[in-house]
């Protein structure tokens, strides 16, 4: 039983680390605001959620793990809204989305 929960915890934390890595690379290499907001939100939602849910498997069922599940739920609720607000404001203030044709011309 201990082995199974530890295995699941390690699996989830590694998955979260993978998403963190992908999002960080995207944050550096993507061309404009919208793509970068997309990458950063991926880190926030899936990366942190998988991290925290992996730590829940290590802690076991207690009040602490309940709070961790609440943290994951609130991150899942807020991060997409924050990205939406950011990119919506950028679009209203006239930041043009990147396209290949625009770059060549």
């Amino acid at each position: 039983m201990q082995f199974i929960t530890n295995f699941l915890g390690v699996l989830l934390v590694l998955g979260g680390a993978l998403f963190m890595l992908a999002g960080s690379i995207g944050l550096v290499r993507f061309p404009d605001v919208y793509c970068r907001a997309h990458a950063a939100t991926k880190v926030d939602t899936l990366g942190i959620m998988l991290f925290v849910l992996g730590l829940v498997f290590f802690v076991g069922f207690s009040l602490t793990s309940l709070k961790m599940i609440l943290v994951a739920a609130f991150v899942a609720l807020t991060a997409p809204v924050a990205a939406h607000a950011l990119s919506r404001r950028a679009l209203i203030h006239g930041v043009k989305p990147w396209s290949k044709k625009q770059k060549e011309g």
């Binding site: 609130f74 609720l77 807020t78 809204v81 939406h84 607000a85 919506r88």
Partner: peptide, 18 residues
């Protein structure tokens, strides 16, 4: 006041929990 219902609904739902 923002015209986006997503931001307004999320903030109104989240503020009582905070």
């Amino acid at each position: 006041q923002t015209q986006s219902p997503i931001i307004e609904i999320a903030a109104r739902g989240l503020a009582p929990f905070i």
